[in-house]
Design a binder for these strands. Sequence first.
DNA 1: GTCTATAACCGGATAGAC
DNA 2: GTCTATCCGGTTATAGAC
Lengths: 211, 211
Amino acid sequence: MRTKPRTGRKAAIREENERAIVRAAEQVFAEHGYQGATTGEIAERAGVPKANLHYYFPTKDDLYQEVLGRIFGFWQEAADALDDQDHPVEALTRYIGKKMDISRAEPLGSKIWAQEIMHGTPTVHEYLEKTLKGWTRSRVAMLERWIADGHIRAVNARYLLYMIWATTQHYADFEGQISILNGGRPLSDAQWGEAKKTVTEIILRGIGAIE
Amino acid sequence: MRTKPRTGRKAAIREENERAIVRAAEQVFAEHGYQGATTGEIAERAGVPKANLHYYFPTKDDLYQEVLGRIFGFWQEAADALDDQDHPVEALTRYIGKKMDISRAEPLGSKIWAQEIMHGTPTVHEYLEKTLKGWTRSRVAMLERWIADGHIRAVNARYLLYMIWATTQHYADFEGQISILNGGRPLSDAQWGEAKKTVTEIILRGIGAIE
DNA sequence: GTCTATAACCGGATAGAC
DNA sequence: GTCTATCCGGTTATAGAC
């Protein structure tokens, strides 16, 4: 008997359990941090006994890496939005919009990422060195080409990128604060639209891409 | 004999120990999160036996509250920079500059604050409700007056404020990522100046306050 | 006011029956 | 593949000698 059958009843059970565990883990890691998260609470939220969690994910760290892997996917997806040779206005509008959408749809992933960075990148250091560093360099080069071509003003491209990351991720990482300042309610559809519009316009106008 | 003499040799010892413990606590809380921080490591970094830490701060939570108190001071100080009726360009330039300076001088506090928010504001909920909410409301009103007076364009004032918070705090909260992308070195004096200039210009131009 | 030794507890991980 | 019972290491907090 295979340990991890790809099809059949057991495979379906495995997949459903793993899915439930990873989702629960995202919530608990985001809310309590790596150390604060307990496998007991994750198992409870996933609706499985703690021993079963350890059957699917031998160690807490394995589970954490699985969760970080999911996040990487979303970040990569957003990164692709800036990976072409469109006009600056369209490219940046799409990139900012996509990042805002991810902040709304996957705030937990963004929070786990932020905490991982604040804790000294123990797990994602390699990713930053090997993938993000190169991607950033190429995007900076692209922005500098736009500057040379007169599409946008001469701003520091790297700090512009940081500004976009910071501003869009803030809506995920600080959603608790934003909700409280919004009268205890999460932002509505209309407010999200307004936030996205505000962020996009200030940045585009700030670099002289519009008006 | 007083338990907490205000002067004399014992008072000096107390003050020095408390100071060392709080500084060490900032480092450990920022790096490992509330749960990940151990009183043992804090005591070790402060150079006192663990039992002595508990003599000065009975519980880990007391120490955490002390650390958060220090942070509030810096945030309040930055908030004051926007508390007057100057021209928008000067007021916002000073506020952004001050927030960037705090990000550089006190990144640990910013990180602890960010994590506290991400963990659901268990400790600072009251502060957000009672202090930050009112301050934000008054600053939004001020910005809207500037818009009405034609000093800046009609942007959503609340999301503009969030943008300033996000962008400036990013340099503290994500300093690990920024350092890696900077070739493994923290930003130099010149780079900090360039970052501050870039952030300030994009925002001021983005709201039509300059150019 | 200091510090060693320890109590009391909790959480990650596993053994082993089903 | 599931789950109860348990081990073991680590953490907060304190007792009590100095």
